[in-house]
């Protein structure tokens, strides 16, 4: 009897590699966006905290837009409209730009909360020792406020990592896109989505564990 030749072939070890590589791409685009977004977000949070009228009037609504418009819409709009203003970005770069701004919009509020968590008396004490404004910020406000809002920041970071799946709509082959490709070929959605889910878990679990242990150490 002839074996049935099928266009759909089963899931094999190579596919696992394929998913693994895609998971690394998810990790890479997330790490990059979270890093850039955090730096931008801290600067924005500081501007919001300092509350100079002009900056707040322009920055706050701008950040609100990125916080409230669904990420998938931002991605598609940016990817399709960027070339019109002369920016020819590939899906990866477009994803990094939007994910970074999105992260920054979320981190800005977290960062402002962190600065607010360090009260005026603490800062007066720092300044009374002769610290400059920037030394107070660097050595007192950031470490104390940073610890206070660290759990909130971890929440943002893990969220952005999961949301990076949306960059798949631009055709960037990260974990979700890779799963879709394999599902089309193997017709085994349950197996493949379970594996992809396991990869997402494997990416975020160490981060939550590590941050929990950091928090415990700081709490002593």
């Amino acid at each position: 009897m002839e074996p049935t030749v099928s266009f759909f072939s089963g899931f094999n070890v190579n596919d696992l590699w394929f998913l693994g590589e895609a998971a690394l791409r998810t990790l890479w685009i997330s790490m990059l966006s979270i890093s850039i977004g955090t730096v931008l977000g801290v600067v924005c949070g500081w501007i919001l905290y300092e509350g100079k009228l002009a900056a707040t009037l322009t920055l706050a609504p701008f950040l609100d837009i990125f916080r409230s418009v669904p990420l998938i819409i931002q991605l598609v709009l940016f990817y399709n409209f960027a070339p019109i203003v002369g920016l020819n970005l590939d899906p990866f770069a477009s994803g990094v730009v939007i994910l970074s701004i999105y992260t920054a919009a979320l981190v800005a509020n977290v960062a402002r909360g962190g600065i607010e968590a360090v009260g005026a008396p603490m800062r007066r004490a720092a300044r009374s020792l002769g610290m400059t404004y920037w030394q107070d910020l660097r050595y007192v406000v950031f470490p104390i406020g940073g610890r206070a809002v660290f759990p909130a920041w971890v929440g943002v970071a893990l969220g952005v990592m999961k949301d990076s799946a949306l960059v798949s709509v631009l055709g960037y082959v990260e974990l979700l896109k890779a799963s879709q490709i394999l599902i089309t070929r193997t017709q085994e959605p349950f197996l493949i989505l379970s594996i992809a889910g396991a990869f997402y878990f494997a990416l975020s679990y160490p981060i939550s564990r590590y941050s929990a242990s950091l928090e415990r150490r700081w709490a002593q």
Partner: peptide, 20 residues
Amino acid sequence: INKLRTKLGMVFQQWNSFPH
């Protein structure tokens, strides 16, 4: 002023230790 403040130590009602 920062240099001058090193001459003038100050202790507050709230002790404001750096907790970290």
